[in-house]
Design a protein around this nucleic acid. Structure first.
Lengths: 296, 296
DNA sequence: CGTCGATCATACAAAAATGTATAGCTGGAC
DNA sequence: GTCCAGCTATACATTTTTGTATGATCGACG
């Protein structure tokens, strides 16, 4: 009988995904020797080699690749169990984990979350800022604030509305460099935009704004850094309209020429519907985001 | 984030099934304090009570019951992973676990397994004797020898044939008590049969042998004990015909009146088809059992 | 009404797993 | 060619987990 500890499968899965013991250890809040021992133990119990060791990392054997779907099934079941457990407890307490884009998480959500936290002192909130989409199915987070429609299966998603995006600049910048009156003029200005983030550039392209990397004179893949540059008067950049209106010194640039909207979606797993705790935060965000959009 | 050790879920499932910490500990080769601590830890992590403790055992809360299917999904995935791992290793070595009925396991299989073991010294064999059906899906065993057609899903089953069952008695018994010539006469003899095993009695009923408990003067729910009684000349009992023919001192009783057959099935999980090790044992048993049946 | 058997909870010793630190190897950049 | 970053493997101290032994409580049963 094999009957290995289920924890070993979890380490196994982490190594499969990370590609090395060290990397897997970093992602699982463990250490490299521990993960290594787990893999050793699992290989011993299963009686089959799972990885070929090298100095560069661990390469999975065909056997390990064949085992991966099963380990992922275990992971999915564990996540479902956790969601069910969270949904089952009815107390207005516990931890709610939210994932959002950088701008949303750093600029828009904090006031709303502050309100929730004050009104419900027993609810703890974790905020994960990541422009990549976190996986609600795997329970990377309980609630997601996204700018695209969630496509995964058992996800409860609500479209809050569309936030307007426009070009802005600080008064100081305008005073020094003047305000462009046409698109052609704008190209001679200090534009703030993305560095290497292909995803963001492509998304802009879909919105009808075809720009290549060289168009930007100030480049950063961090949305927060872009916003900070904008506020510091470094140049012209895009900004969510309600956010810009809160800053009295930001003025619109070419509002009639460049303007588009991004949908705002709020999502949670269906299994968490029953959780009062998650629901409280979800509803607060729904209302807060709706108000925010209306500001624009 | 909850992110509990997966081992906790396993203990949780064991307690759910066993109904008490002590019982769960026995079934998992662990101890009662350990299982208890696991349950405590899981309740703390999930933030919800899972059991109401009492001196008689642990009663699951509704929350725990809701969580059970997920834990079972994890278990199923773990079992599938193990089967895949066993199937993937191609060496003719490892452990093969066989489940069989008492008679089959104690009287019929051992010579075959001895041959396999000699021919393949690196294959270890575990033999589980249990008249209840072990669960191949859960990987309670790799191979099952059964007397009924397996009904579970992804099971590879082969009908080896039908073994004849008849009544027998030892020469010594016949010499002392005489041989019955009719069924009516037989009812005055010392009959060997089942004690409280309803399943066995009902199965006899289905075969057209309607007998109640009082018919038997020598009762045991252990098939091995019944056979030993028969061999010791204690009375008249049923026996597989090939088995009886091996014992020179057992003579048939009323062979024309009472005789029926039991199918013999050999089963393994489909996932294990690829395993050379399991396949070797499976094929050896298939051949050995076919020869055995032909002896009758 | 007491006894027996089975249960959970707790204290303490033993065993096992983990983390820290370090050595050694490898591949790519300059 | 050398350096650097990143990786695995190993030794050792520490922490954590586990097991043993025991006490206390409850219910079945005679």
């Amino acid at each position: 009988m094999i009957d290995a500890d289920w924890d070993l499968y979890r380490s196994f899965l982490a190594v499969l995904r990370a590609g090395s013991l060290s990397s897997a250890a970093r992602q699982t809040a463990s250490t490299q020797p521990t993960i290594g021992r787990h893999v050793d133990a699992l290989e011993r119990r299963l009686g089959a080699p799972l990885f070929t060791r090298s100095r560069a990392g661990l390469t999975p054997t065909p056997a390990a690749i064949a085992l991966q779907p099963h380990a992922e099934a275990m992971e999915a079941a564990a996540a479902a169990l956790e969601r069910a457990a969270v949904g089952a407890r009815d107390a207005e307490s516990g931890v709610v984990r939210i994932t959002a884009s950088e701008i949303m998480g750093a600029e828009v959500l904090p006031p709303m979350l502050a309100d929730v936290s004050l009104a419900h002192p027993r609810i703890a909130i974790e905020l994960v800022l990541d422009n990549r989409l976190a996986d609600l199915m795997r329970r990377d987070a309980d609630i997601a604030v996204r700018m695209t429609r969630p496509t995964q299966g058992a996800i409860l998603a609500r479209r809050i509305g569309a936030v307007q995006i426009g070009l802005y600049a600080h008064r100081r910048y305008i005073a020094r460099a003047g305000a462009p009156r046409t698109l052609a003029e704008a190209s001679r200005h200090a534009a703030i935009g993305y560095d290497r983030d292909q995803f963001a550039v492509r998304r802009l392209g879909e919105e009808g704004v075809a720009l290549d990397r060289d168009f930007f004179r100030l480049r950063s893949d961090s949305d927060c850094a872009q916003l900070a540059l904008l506020r510091a008067g470094a140049g012209i950049g895009s900004c969510q309209r309600p956010l810009a209106r809160r800053a009295p010194d930001l003025v619109p640039v070419l509002p009639n020429d460049i303007s588009f909207t991004l949908d705002v979606w709020l999502a949670m797993h269906e299994d968490l519907k029953a959780s009062r705790t998650v629901r409280i935060v979800y509803d607060a965000l729904a209302k807060g985001l709706a108000d925010y959009i209306r500001e624009g």
